[in-house]
């Protein structure tokens, strides 16, 4: 089970942040190869593991930069809004050095402040293990 452990003196302020790569899905990549289309270069983003998010989100401009079209539209609730409509995209998130890969649906939202470009939500955590050891300024994340 691939896993990653980070220690950061600022973990209480910044939260559990991972630097991850985002690319088009493997299914679409296969299609692009068959059609001799150019495959977009993966985009590296800062992602926050957020147990308060029921699903994974991505900043709206990332799927646009990858040239992706949506596969769904849902309503979300946040502390300040109710039933806000957002598009969904299928994407591949990976950490090449650690061998962590997740392919799934990401909801496109506006993410402001703290330089965060994605939230890793409970739909992804459902497939892994997340351990936060506050007194050691450390967290571990594993994915099946």
């Amino acid at each position: 089970m691939p896993s990653v452990t980070y220690t950061s003196p600022n973990i209480q302020i910044e939260g559990p942040i991972l630097e991850v790569h985002f690319s088009i899905s493997s299914e679409l990549e296969k299609k692009y190869i068959e059609e001799s289309k150019q495959i977009p270069v993966p985009i590296v983003v800062k992602s926050l593991i957020d147990t308060g998010a029921s699903s994974c989100t991505i900043r709206e401009d990332i799927p646009k930069k990858l040239g992706l079209e949506p596969i769904g539209k849902i309503k979300i609730n946040t502390p300040s809004t109710k039933d806000h409509e957002c598009f969904q995209y299928v994407m591949r998130m990976f950490m090449p050095l650690q061998g962590l890969t997740y392919e799934g649906v990401f909801t496109a939202v506006s993410l402001e402040g703290q330089d965060i470009e994605a939230l890793i939500g409970r739909d992804l955590l459902q497939q892994g293990i997340f351990i936060y050891i506050g007194y050691m300024n450390q967290f571990t994340f594993s994915l099946m």
Binding site: I71, N77, T78
Partner: peptide, 21 residues
């Protein structure tokens, strides 16, 4: 469109104030 067939659409909930709508 890929959509779950259900009587009442399940909404996604976010407690973080990072999301601006």
């Amino acid at each position: 469109l890929v959509k779950k067939i259900e009587e009442v659409d399940q909404k996604q909930n976010f407690t973080s104030n990072l999301i601006i709508c």
